Computed example of a mutant assay.
Amino acid sequence: MPCRTPASRRFAAALAAGSLIAVPAADAATASGSLTVTASVASVCLISNGTLAFGSYDPTAASALNGSTTVTLTCTLGTPYQIGLDAGTGAGATVALRRLSSGGNTLGYRLFRDASRTLNWGNTPGTDTLDATSSASALTNTITIYGQIPASAAVPTGSYSDSVAITVNY
């Protein structure tokens, strides 16, 4: 039989009696912090192209020929903007009287910001542009352009066209 020392006999006796004291585990620790999340939203505007088709013009008619079209302006909410229309490409055109062309012939027309056709649409900010200087109230806005060919314009038959640049300042 193996020889036991007095200390090993006490350990064996304590083990048999279940009287060993368990050593507690180390306390768990936590740490905390924060995550900063940021983003910036840019002021952006996009405008669609449009077509204003007056249809058939009768130069003998006693009344003007009216037409209208819409373009879509999409801007970041809260973005102030101004929309201007240039004079177009017709020879001798101004923003007050633009010119449709057919070969060397021209047919005058006007563009307006209002349905009653009293507010000329040009490209001088604050004067004859469509202004939303407070801010864009919706992401997508439908913009109506009103046109008019004056009555009794003496022009030869033909297909007349023009191209007007739309500029959005924001």
Rank of each mutant, 00 (worst) to 15 (best):
D58T: 04
G104I: 12
T94W: 09
A31Q: 15
C75N: 08
G126H: 01
S102M: 10
A62F: 02
S40N: 08
A61L: 01
N49P: 01
A132M: 13
T70S: 15
S63H: 06
S34A: 12
Q82K: 15
T38W: 03
L35P: 00
D27R: 15
T144W: 00
A93R: 03
I47R: 00
L77Q: 08
A91T: 10
T129D: 07
S134P: 04
I47Q: 05
R99H: 13
I21E: 06
S40G: 03
T36V: 13
S32N: 11
T69G: 14
N141S: 15
L65T: 04
A31T: 15
L111I: 08
D131R: 00
G104Y: 08
S34G: 09
L46G: 09
T74A: 15
T106E: 02
L73S: 09
N105L: 10
A42P: 12
R98W: 13
L73P: 00
A138S: 15
L35D: 05
T76L: 05
A93W: 02
A62C: 00
L65K: 02
N49G: 07
N141K: 10
T36Y: 07
D27P: 15
S116M: 02
I143Y: 06
S68Y: 06
T127I: 10
G55K: 14
S43I: 00
A22D: 14
T127P: 00
T69C: 10
S116F: 00
W121M: 04
A31W: 15
G78S: 11
T142H: 04
L119N: 12
D128F: 11
Y109A: 03
S43K: 14
G90H: 05
G88F: 05
A62E: 02
R99S: 06
T69F: 11
P80D: 09
N105D: 13
V37L: 12
W121Q: 03
D114L: 03
R113K: 11
P24Y: 01
A115D: 15
A61E: 01
V95L: 04
T60Y: 03
G92R: 06
G33R: 04
T70D: 12
N141C: 09
A39C: 08
C75K: 02
I83H: 07
S43T: 09
D86Y: 01
A115N: 12
D114G: 11
